[in-house]
Design a protein around this nucleic acid. Sequence first.
RNA 1: GCGAGAGUGGCGGAAUUGGCAGACGCACUGGACUUAGGAUCCAGCGGGCAACCGUGAGGGUUCAAGUCCCUCCUCUCGCACCA
Length: 826
Amino acid sequence: MKYNPWQIEEKWQRKWEEDGVFRVTEDRTKPKYYCLEMFPYPSGRIHMGHVRNYTIGDVISRYKMMRGYNVLHPMGWDAFGLPAENAAIQQGEHPARWTYSNIEYMRKQLKRMGFSYDWTREIATCAPEYYKWEQKFFIEMFRKGLAYRKKALLNWCPTCQTVLANEQVEAGKCWRCDSDVTTKEMEQWFLKITEYAEELLDFTYRMEGWPEKVLIMQRNWIGKSTGAEIDFPLEGSDEKIRVFTTRPDTVFGATFMSIAPEHPLTLELARRFGKEEEVKKFVDRVLLQDRFYRTSEEAEKEGVFTGAYCINPFTGRRMPIFAANFVLYEYGTGAVMAVPAHDQRDFEFARKYGLPIIVVIQPEGEELHPESMERAYEDPGVMVQSGEFTGLPSEEGKEAIIRYLEEKGWGKRSVNYRLRDWGISRQRYWGAPIPVVYCEKCGTVPVPEEELPVLLPEVEEINPEGGSPLAKIEEFVNTSCPDCGGKARRETDTMDTFVESSWYFLRYCSPHCETGPFDRESIDYWMPVDQYIGGIEHAVLHLLYSRFFVKVLRDLGYVSIDEPFDNLLTQGMVIKDGAKMSKSKGNVVDPEHLIQKYGADTARLFTLFAAPPEKDLDWSDQGVEGASRFINRMFNLVARYREMVRGVPPSTGKDEGEGLAREIRHWTHRTIKRVTREIDTRFHFNTAIAAAMEFVNFLSKLQIPDGESERVTPALKEAFRSLILLMTPFIPHVCEELWEMIGEEGYASLQPWPEFYEELAASEKFLLVVQINGKVRSRLEMDADAGEEEVKEAVLADRRVKEYVGGKEIKKWVYVPKKLVSIVVS
RNA sequence: GCGAGAGUGGCGGAAUUGGCAGACGCACUGGACUUAGGAUCCAGCGGGCAACCGUGAGGGUUCAAGUCCCUCCUCUCGCACCA
């Protein structure tokens, strides 16, 4: 009898499917567990990253199932996206055909891995039954003002003639044609994620099941800063310029003002003061620079005087107003009060243009002088040269200044976020149409609900020149206004694919629901996701958008949860030869070859054994051999004892038995304990597998003396049953086969997880380590129930101990029960 | 620059609360079986002849430090003119 993975795997995959072993319903007699892995983009074939991600999720799902949970473990396809469109351009294949044939192929590959998905719940986001509901959400968001249209500066690729999402711009270049990306102002649809900035931030402090790293990244991305807005009157006018600052305590040191080149006031002021020509030259030049250069640190700070002055309300100082390249129009008010002594950018700017520097914060224990300063002092200190505020510690000063401002009506307390609203318009074909029409009379009108979905029209070919493909389809564009019936044009942009992935986990709960996006009861039963697993690359985008979406759906009355994912596991990358697997590096291992050569169980076992899930996994062909070898050894071991244990009832209860049987039972229970703890407390599958390997090593060495076999077989049966069940989540196919081989009924996958008795797991002897003056000098085997007196007697009687202690005085005696003795002698 | 994480044999990686450093696996060495072995099984495997020395470097706390404290070095990741 030889281990034949292909035959075994085919057999059990077929049986699981025939018997619907992994199909789930809302069974209220069991606790629920929703285990989810980030769904793949159907790019063509699965890669090692998928294998790792989905294997981790599968172990967790199968383990929880055996622990008695009702487990939802679904799979689907993030099916809209650019690669489909590119394939269409390059190969002339329709994006839908290309996508669906990829899905067919990848589904087969995933099934071949033996993952425990409930395939009846499979979804593809490009299906009208899916995006229909997304369009409905969009309309509801539009009605609540959470989806709106505005002009915005977008990344524009002049070669491809299209807008690029931020993630499609790599180091200032177009990801597809490598030309320099510029900006262009266009009408865009936005989702108002900033409305939820505070809540999104707030919850990061309560999400205990998420890695701290991800939470920190999200907090940084949201980028909350608190401070004040202050009005600076324009000299010779009633107008005011409003700035945002986080350092109101430094306002006495503000000596000039910087405003963004694209700020409408910039050219307006220049015109008024006869500086139009040179300011416009500067503005044009800066706006031509790409944003990546302009916002990088290397970019030199430069600016131009607009000719205008404003007045510092606190000091009465005339502050020249500069247009400066480093001021961002989109952040705060697009204008900044410049405090050169206490802000590095302003410092550099002031030095360059010879502007005054006034120190208003003194650090403790040193005195700053503007002439001798080499850089700005940005830390807290004591306020100086600040009128009635002089002498206040700067932190208190912030509060005092804000109160003063508000009293005087010069400004107010203010909070700013770095987070911007989410631009979702894409000039793409292969995406969900934005369900809006533009009527000459009624303006922007959402498509009525009963007309949803706005179907993506068939298209002959996609223009490689780019631009919105939908805009070229007359029958699609030309429509009538739902309100007045007059002539209207459809929106031709489609939605960012991140919109689809922001709610797919909800759809899985009732994937075939026709009356709504999902069935409320199923959502209330399954959500939130108990364990979410995926790559760290989505730490901000997908994970933040999903959080936002759930909060919006909550406020629209669809769900009653605040957060979608209770626990998050970010798995490490798959590395080979010191680099991430990638086509360009040529270090890709195709999972399909692996399966062909070793079978799915080996592929699974290796990815689990090589590293804990959250760490990077170093690929090693020899390591795969090792995994394969282990499965063979386990198979041969069970095969050898198969006849002996068939039909024998396993040992149960806490009676240890005697001799060999007792040793076997001790090993069995110890192993159950170790494997369970490693999986349960921290998902460290590598050490769980190591424990099982040790158990196999032990069992392989067993020599059963003639005549003893009767007494030993129940213990052996228990051992094999346990071993097989412990390994089932990791290598399910071979475990099903072995389960059958030892004569057990039903599916191993459906058995309850083995239990252990603490009494049996504990050993009856322990090895006592004896240290003398901090060095290990002896080891003694002791009975587990030996008390300190007994231990002391045994230690002092030990030959090696006597050698070191001799007649010397024992100055210290430390006893750690069941572990060690530490003796200090002079 | 700021933030987070990590440095342990030839390699991947183990070491509850400070308590035998190197589990388990790979590679390697020797042996057995064999026509053969790149299959399988058995044994060995941090360094050093040894006393001893060994967890990035140097200090410290402790009977005892990979683990705690201080200083420093290296690497990885994230953010980086956000006022």
